[in-house]
Computed example of a mutant assay.
Amino acid sequence: MKKAGIIGGSGFIGSYITKQFLDHGFQVKVSTTDITEKDKYEHLMVFNHSENLYISELNVTDKIALKDFVSDCDVVIHSGTPFILDVEDPKTQLFDPTIKGTENFLEVINNTPSIEKVVFIASVAAYNTNFPFPAGTKSFTDTFDETEVKFTSTESHPYAQAKFIANETVENFIKNNTDLHFEISSVSPVMVIGNALSEREDSTSGSIQYLIKNNIAPNDFMKAVFDNNVPFAMVTVEDVALATYKTATTKGLHGKNYLLSSETYKASDIQAMLNNKNPKEKLSIIYKNDLAKNDLNIQFKPIKETLNNYST
């Protein structure tokens, strides 16, 4: 039985990834920042095949602990970077754990002979730090795929900037190490929607859905979303988990970074669907998913059903 180590495997996206690997016969090791806080991972214990689940305390900035965590893994998924919108100290809260954590992780896995495949849960911010606003001179209706020139700005949200730099760190590592004993691939989801598998209320993805559903703008970002009726490219959390599993278990994908995206709707129509109403405008496809569909054989779920079933 192969073992998958999932950093951040009890979070919003990570929980669905953990479930995928358990359902497919893997032993699964999940990291948690504090093993005494059982409420953060106890929901994983009700999954099928949870007898093959192990919880391990891990601080990703601690290289010794990180080395111990991955030492017996065949596959490692890194989905453990913080997603914070209301940031007080960008360096401490976002840049250090995201970028330094990525550097530490790459150093450790390069010295772990058991590892066969590594998958980073990146972000659409790896391609456009202005998301959900357009990249550079593009308009809201211009399409975007993996061949586009990547866009970043120091005026973008610190979370997006941190994810962009982390992705650059991974790409540079791949370029500078041509004889790796393992493959590295990444997936870059757009706005991830769906219901959490836990009772936790600290999911930023869930919070954004809640704010749009109830027309609440507690910060400048959400105010801009409503004022501009911003179109969001979205993807269901189940599709992100399935794409991650397939990326991790398919050979020959070294160096690829897949945009994971389904359909795009304006904020007003997202609000309508979250309240079980029909959208006024037709869906569009802005962030394209052809590469993921072709390589991973995935058919992305329509957005309306997931938004209609959002429970918070």
Rank of each mutant, 00 (worst) to 15 (best):
residue 1 M to K: 06
residue 2 K to I: 10
residue 3 K to Q: 12
residue 4 A to E: 13
residue 4 A to Y: 12
residue 13 I to T: 00
residue 14 G to F: 07
residue 17 I to F: 04
residue 20 Q to R: 06
residue 22 L to I: 11
residue 25 G to C: 12
residue 27 Q to S: 02
residue 31 S to H: 01
residue 31 S to K: 04
residue 33 T to R: 10
residue 37 E to K: 15
residue 39 D to C: 05
residue 39 D to V: 08
residue 40 K to Y: 02
residue 40 K to I: 00
residue 42 E to L: 11
residue 43 H to M: 12
residue 45 M to F: 11
residue 45 M to T: 10
residue 47 F to I: 06
residue 49 H to K: 06
residue 49 H to E: 14
residue 50 S to H: 15
residue 51 E to D: 14
residue 51 E to S: 09
residue 52 N to W: 15
residue 53 L to P: 05
residue 56 S to V: 15
residue 56 S to H: 10
residue 57 E to M: 09
residue 57 E to V: 05
residue 60 V to Y: 08
residue 66 L to H: 11
residue 68 D to I: 12
residue 68 D to K: 15
residue 72 D to H: 13
residue 72 D to L: 13
residue 73 C to R: 06
residue 75 V to K: 04
residue 78 H to L: 13
residue 80 G to K: 02
residue 80 G to E: 01
residue 80 G to A: 02
residue 82 P to Q: 01
residue 82 P to T: 02
residue 83 F to M: 07
residue 84 I to D: 01
residue 86 D to F: 05
residue 89 D to Y: 03
residue 90 P to Y: 08
residue 90 P to S: 08
residue 98 T to N: 09
residue 104 N to H: 15
residue 104 N to R: 10
residue 106 L to P: 01
residue 108 V to R: 08
residue 116 E to S: 13
residue 122 A to K: 04
residue 124 V to C: 04
residue 127 Y to W: 12
residue 127 Y to K: 11
residue 130 N to I: 00
residue 130 N to A: 15
residue 130 N to R: 11
residue 130 N to W: 07
residue 136 G to T: 13
residue 138 K to V: 04
residue 140 F to G: 00
residue 142 D to R: 06
residue 142 D to P: 07
residue 142 D to Q: 08
residue 147 T to E: 10
residue 147 T to P: 01
residue 151 F to K: 02
residue 152 T to F: 11
residue 154 T to K: 14
residue 154 T to F: 10
residue 161 Q to C: 07
residue 161 Q to V: 15
residue 163 K to E: 03
residue 163 K to D: 00
residue 165 I to C: 07
residue 166 A to G: 08
residue 166 A to M: 03
residue 167 N to H: 14
residue 168 E to N: 14
residue 169 T to A: 11
residue 169 T to L: 08
residue 172 N to F: 08
residue 173 F to Q: 07
residue 175 K to Q: 04
residue 175 K to M: 03
residue 181 H to G: 02
residue 184 I to Y: 00
residue 193 I to N: 04
residue 193 I to R: 01
residue 194 G to F: 03
residue 196 A to T: 09
residue 197 L to E: 08
residue 197 L to Y: 10
residue 198 S to F: 14
residue 199 E to W: 00
residue 200 R to A: 03
residue 200 R to S: 06
residue 201 E to G: 13
residue 204 T to Y: 09
residue 207 S to I: 02
residue 211 L to I: 03
residue 214 N to K: 14
residue 214 N to T: 14
residue 219 N to E: 05
residue 220 D to R: 04
residue 224 A to W: 13
residue 225 V to W: 12
residue 229 N to S: 06
residue 230 V to S: 12
residue 232 F to I: 01
residue 233 A to I: 02
residue 235 V to Y: 13
residue 236 T to H: 07
residue 239 D to Q: 10
residue 239 D to A: 06
residue 239 D to W: 09
residue 239 D to L: 01
residue 243 A to F: 02
residue 247 T to Q: 07
residue 249 T to Q: 08
residue 250 T to S: 12
residue 252 G to C: 09
residue 259 L to R: 04
residue 264 T to A: 12
residue 267 A to D: 02
residue 272 A to E: 12
residue 275 N to Q: 10
residue 278 N to C: 05
residue 279 P to T: 01
residue 286 I to V: 15
residue 286 I to T: 12
residue 287 Y to W: 11
residue 288 K to N: 10
residue 293 K to E: 01
residue 295 D to W: 11
residue 296 L to R: 03
residue 297 N to K: 15
residue 299 Q to F: 10
residue 300 F to E: 04
residue 305 E to R: 15
residue 308 N to G: 02
residue 311 S to H: 15
residue 312 T to S: 12
